[in-house]
C-alpha cells in the first residue's frame, strides 16, 4: 500500500475553505512528516478546527489538494482505517447512557457486543491511558481528563497511523494538560504514530511539537517551534498579552 512508502502522513496544497461564502481558510499548504507531531496554533476564529475538519472531509473544501499517506482524501474509505480523530468535545448530553465499554463496542463490526480479541485490544489501550478500571462507568460521569483519556484509547483501537486532535487539553486543569501531552507523546512513540493537533499551550508546543503551523486564515509560519515562534509573529497572530510571555513578563497581562 502506498501508505507505507510515502514520507508524508499528510500533504496539503493550496487548501481554501469557505463557509457560507465567507473565507475561513485561505490557500494553506504544508506537509506532515511521518512520525512527527505537528501543532496548529492561532487565535480564536483563525480557522484551526475548520482546517482540521476539511482535512477529514467533515467540511467541504473550496479548492486545493489533500493527500493522507499519498491517498487523495476524496477516497475517504481508504483513508478512514489509517486515521483517528478526537474532537474538542463530544456532542452528547449529560444523560447519554453509554458506558466506556459500550463506546468500544460501537467500533466492533458485530451487531451486538464485541469479540474476544476486540475486548483484549480494548483492555490494552485502556491500560495504556490508565483507564482500565473505568470500564463500566458512563461517559457522562467521567471527568474532562478521564473522558479525554478514554477517547485517546478509543482512537487507538484500530491501530491508526495518524491521529488528529482538536485541543486535546480543552476543559482540563493545567496539571492535567501536562499529563495529557506527556501521555500523547509516549503513545506516539510506542505506537509509532504521527500526530496533528490544535493547541493553545505554547509552552507545551515548545516541548512536544516537531513542527508548528501558525494559522490566521492564512498560514503565517511553518517550521520547528524554536525557530518560527518569534515575538513579532506571535504579536501579529495574537496581538499583545501572549500566553508564552506571561511567565517571564507578567506585566503584559
Amino acid at each position: 500500500m502506498s501508505a507505507e512508502k510515502t514520507m508524508f502522513a499528510a500533504e496539503v496544497k493550496n487548501l481554501t475553505v469557505d463557509i457560507n461564502s465567507h473565507r475561513v481558510v485561505s490557500d494553506v499548504s504544508f506537509t506532515v512528516p511521518v512520525g512527527s507531531t505537528t501543532a496548529i496554533i492561532g487565535p480564536n476564529g483563525a480557522g484551526k478546527s475548520v482546517l482540521l475538519k476539511a482535512l477529514l472531509r467533515l467540511l467541504p473544501k473550496t479548492s486545493g489538494d489533500v493527500k493522507i499517506f499519498g491517498i487523495p482524501h476524496e477516497n475517504y474509505k481508504e483513508i478512514a482505517p489509517l486515521i483517528s480523530y478526537i474532537p474538542q468535545r463530544l456532542a452528547f448530553d449529560d444523560h447519554f447512557p453509554l458506558t466506556v465499554k459500550g463506546l468500544f463496542e460501537l467500533k466492533s463490526p458485530r451487531p451486538i457486543g464485541m469479540s474476544v480479541s476486540e475486548r483484549t485490544r480494548m483492555e490494552e489501550v485502556l491500560e495504556l491511558v490508565s483507564m482500565r478500571t473505568h470500564l463500566h462507568e458512563r461517559l457522562s460521569e467521567l471527568s474532562g481528563g478521564q473522558l479525554q483519556r478514554v477517547l485517546i484509547a478509543y482512537s487507538l483501537t484500530d491501530h491508526p497511523k495518524l491521529l488528529f486532535l482538536d485541543e486535546p487539553s480543552a476543559g482540563i486543569d493545567v496539571q492535567g494538560q501536562e499529563t495529557i501531552y506527556a501521555l500523547l507523546d509516549r503513545i506516539r512513540q510506542e505506537e509509532k504514530l504521527t500526530m496533528v493537533l490544535i493547541s493553545h499551550e505554547l509552552e507545551i508546543i515548545m516541548q512536544y511539537a516537531d513542527q508548528v503551523l501558525c494559522l490566521n486564515q492564512r498560514l503565517l509560519c511553518a517550521g520547528a517551534p524554536q525557530h518560527v515562534l518569534t515575538d513579532d509573529l506571535l504579536k501579529e497572530m495574537y496581538g499583545t498579552g501572549v500566553e508564552r510571555y506571561e511567565h517571564s513578563h507578567p506585566h503584559h497581562d
Binding site: K53, L56, S84, L90, A91, F92, F96, E105, L106, P111
Partner: peptide
C-alpha cells in the same frame, strides 16, 4: 437495525466523530 444500529448510536453520540470514522 442489527446492520446499522451501532452506527446510529455512534451518530447520536457525536456525528462528526462517526463521520471521521467512516
Amino acid at each position: 437495525l442489527l446492520w446499522v444500529g451501532k452506527g446510529l448510536v455512534a451518530i447520536a453520540l457525536d456525528a462528526s466523530l462517526a463521520k471521521a470514522e467512516g
